[in-house]
C-alpha cells in the first residue's frame, strides 16, 4: 500500500516535470509532420528546444516591466493546471486554472501599446471565449457518465469514455485547433499571416519572455492532449494513441484549410461544438431512460 502511495505521488511529479519537455517534442513532431505533408525534410525533432535555448540567451528586450512576470505566469499556471490533472484533481478546477494562464498571456499582449500585439491579444481573448464553454461542457458531460468531476475517477473506470461520449470527442477538435494555433482558427498568432498580424499575440515578446511563453504553450498543448487521453483512460496507452490520432487530424486540417476569421471561429464553437455536446448528453439521458 505504501509503495502504491509513493507511486501515486512520484509518478505525477515526474509527469509534471516532464510535461514541458514532452510538449517540446510534440511541437517537434508537429513541425516534422507538417514539413512532410508539404514534401519537405523539415527541421530535426529537437528543433523547438534549440529555439527556446537560443531565445533564453538573447539580449533581453521587454515591452513593459510586468511583461516578464506575466510571461512566467502563463507558463507556471499552465503547468499548475497540468499538475492538477496529473494528480487526478477536479476537471472544472483545471479548466478554471487554465483561464489564469490565458489571462496572463492576454494581459501581457494587451498591455504593450503595440497595434499588432493588441490585435492578437483581442483575438486570443475571443479564442478563450470560444473554447472555454466547450471545455466546461466536456467536463459536465464526463460528469454525466462517471458521476464525478475528478480525473481520478476517470482513471479508475473499466470502460472507455469514448463509447459514451463520441460527439464530445469530436467537439474537442476545434478546441485543439484553437489551442495549437492552427488553421483554420489560428486567428491570434498565425504562422502565415506576417502581413496583417506579424506575430499576433506574441509580437512584443522577445528573448527570454518569448522562451517562457513558448514553454507555456507547450505545456498547454500537453494539457489539452492529456484531456483527450482521458477519453480512453484504461488502458492509458490507447488514450495516448487516440490523442496522437487527434493531433494528426488537426495537422491535416491545418494543412488543408485556410484561415477563417474570428467570427466564424466563435460561431462554430458556440453552435456546432455546443450542439454536438448537447446531442451527446441528450443521447446519454435517453439511453438511461430506455434502459429503465
Amino acid at each position: 500500500m505504501a509503495e502504491n502511495n509513493i507511486l501515486n505521488i512520484v509518478l505525477p511529479v515526474i509527469l509534471v516535470l516532464f510535461a514541458p519537455i514532452l510538449g517540446g517534442f510534440i511541437m517537434g513532431i508537429d513541425r516534422k509532420l507538417t514539413a512532410r505533408m508539404q514534401s519537405r525534410m523539415g527541421p530535426p525533432l529537437i528543433q523547438p528546444f534549440y529555439d527556446v535555448i537560443k531565445l533564453w540567451g538573447k539580449q533581453p528586450f521587454i515591452s513593459s516591466s510586468i511583461q516578464p512576470i506575466l510571461a512566467f505566469g502563463y507558463f507556471a499556471f499552465s503547468l499548475t493546471s497540468f499538475a492538477l490533472l496529473a494528480f487526478g484533481q477536479d476537471l472544472l478546477l483545471i479548466i478554471f486554472t487554465v483561464a489564469i494562464a490565458d489571462l496572463c498571456l492576454i494581459v501581457a499582449s494587451l498591455n504593450s501599446k503595440s497595434p499588432y500585439s493588441v490585435l492578437g491579444g483581442k483575438r486570443e481573448l475571443i479564442s478563450m471565449m470560444s473554447y472555454e464553454p466547450i471545455l466546461l461542457l466536456m467536463a459536465i458531460s464526463i460528469y454525466y457518465v462517471t458521476g464525478s468531476f475528478m480525473v481520478q475517477r476517470i482513471l479508475s473506470l473499466n470502460y472507455p469514455l469514448l463509447t459514451y461520449l463520441p460527439l464530445v470527442f469530436l467537439a474537442l477538435i476545434p478546441v485543439l485547433i484553437i489551442d495549437l494555433k492552427k488553421s483554420p482558427y489560428d486567428v491570434s498568432a498565425s504562422a502565415h499571416a506576417h502581413q496583417e498580424l506579424v506575430r499576433g499575440v506574441f509580437t512584443e515578446f522577445s528573448g527570454y519572455t518569448l522562451a517562457l511563453v513558448e514553454l507555456g504553450h507547450w505545456t498547454k498543448i500537453v494539457l489539452m492532449l492529456s484531456l483527450v487521453t482521458l477519453f480512453w483512460a484504461t488502458p492509458i496507452i490507447i488514450g495516448i494513441f487516440l490523442a496522437l490520432i487527434l493531433f494528426f487530424v488537426v495537422l491535416v486540417i491545418d494543412n488543408v484549410y485556410p484561415r477563417l476569421n474570428w467570427k466564424s471561429m466563435l460561431k462554430t464553437t458556440w453552435s456546432v461544438g455546443v450542439l454536438l455536446i448537447i446531442a451527446n448528453i441528450v443521447g446519454l439521458i435517453s439511453r438511461v431512460v430506455m434502459r429503465i
Binding site: Q59, P60, I62
Partner: peptide, 19 residues
Amino acid sequence: IMSGYFIAKKKGGVIKPPY
C-alpha cells in the same frame, strides 16, 4: 508571483518601444 518577480529582476531587460 514571487518567482516571476525574481526572474524579471534577474534577467531584467531594456524596455523597447513596440514594433
